[in-house]
């Protein structure tokens, strides 16, 4: 499919001024993207005194002392572990539940499917804001406020709509004959799911994992309202608390922000292809 476009753009295709303008736009936007990130990193290598004297230049005496201090004060090991737990657990559950239900919706005939499947599709349009207050009140009423489970369940629920959508579409594209011949051989539906469908579904599982990991890892609001104890905070919540408006030690604040930024940037650079594909596949929303 991916043959390169052979007819290149010719010099005469666009007015030279237009070309220059386009070049400049792309360049300016790229510089604007990279410079603030660069400024963040070099600022984290300055002491607060140096930062106040020299806010934009390169550090004269670069120091990495801000990092251990910020790590300790913001309790980054707890934050990382919590973020890791919620991200991994919710992603695995979303993938499992979506594949299961997607298989049933796509391959088992039932009168309930249009209604059930439809209820998930509507969910693609719902946002966390519309359910934030009820979720908080429900968490308090069920004693799930300030518990791991109380955060994990909503994360799984919120990942379901797009998961169901993608999995149902994917499993529909598997030929019916695959399922039918296994049925004739006497396999139960659960066995077909475990032995045939789940192993085939790797591409959609990867897409879903990418979407869910980047969503949950960076998610802020839900943990912010459902958790008050330090022991359960995740990275975004902890980072905002540490380097929020009241932070006065700039060096440490920038170090904390850098620590918060690096994992996702590394994740992105490693899985660039998959993320790009996942994003465009997830954009079928609406």
């Amino acid at each position: 499919m991916k043959t390169a476009v052979k007819t290149k753009i010719r010099k005469t295709d666009f007015h030279p001024l237009l070309r220059i303008f386009v070049y400049l736009t792309v360049l300016v936007f790229t510089v604007l993207t990279l410079y603030p990130l660069f400024w963040l990193v070099i600022s984290s290598l300055k002491t607060t005194t140096e930062f106040q004297r020299n806010m934009t230049g390169l550090p004269v005496n670069p120091t990495i002392n801000n990092y251990p201090t910020a790590w300790r004060l913001a309790q980054f090991d707890t934050l990382f572990l919590n973020s890791l737990f919620f991200t991994v657990a919710s992603t695995l559950l979303v993938i499992l539940f979506s594949l299961m239900a997607g298989f049933a919706f796509a391959k088992i005939r039932s009168k309930a499917t249009p209604f059930l499947h439809g209820s998930f599709v509507i969910g693609i349009l719902l946002t966390l804001q519309s359910i934030m207050v009820p979720l908080f009140l429900m968490a308090v009423a069920t004693n799930l406020y300030n518990t791991r489970l109380g955060v994990l369940i909503p994360y799984v629920g919120m990942g379901m709509p797009i998961g169901i959508y993608l999995c149902t579409e994917f499993i529909k594209s598997v030929p019916d004959s695959v399922v039918e011949s296994a049925r004739i051989d006497g396999a139960s539906y659960l066995r077909i799911f475990a032995m045939i469908v789940a192993p085939m579904a790797k591409p959609v599982a990867v897409t879903l994992a990418i979407l869910n990991v980047s969503g949950v890892w960076n998610e802020f609001m839900l943990v912010n309202i459902l958790v008050s104890s330090d022991a359960l905070r995740t990275l975004p919540v902890g980072i905002l608390k540490f380097s929020g408006p009241l932070a006065s030690d700039y060096g440490r604040m920038f170090a904390a922000l850098t620590i918060g930024m690096v994992p996702m940037v590394v994740f992105y650079l490693i899985f660039r292809k998959q993320i790009t594909q996942g994003v465009s596949a997830g954009a079928v929303k609406g």
Binding site: L96, F97, S98, M100, A101, F103, A104, F105, I108, S110, A112, L116, S119, F120, G123, L126, S130, I131, V133, P134, L135, M138, I153, P154, V156, G157, M158, M160, P161, G163, I164, S188, Y189, L190, F193
Partner: peptide
């Protein structure tokens, strides 16, 4: 099989998204 496969997803989703919307 249908019920078993669909149930976990439906339960979680209805509990934390569909019900709260109506509740709200």
């Amino acid at each position: 099989a249908y019920l078993l496969l669909v149930l976990p997803g439906v339960l979680v989703y209805w509990a934390v998204m569909a019900f709260p919307t109506v509740f709200s």
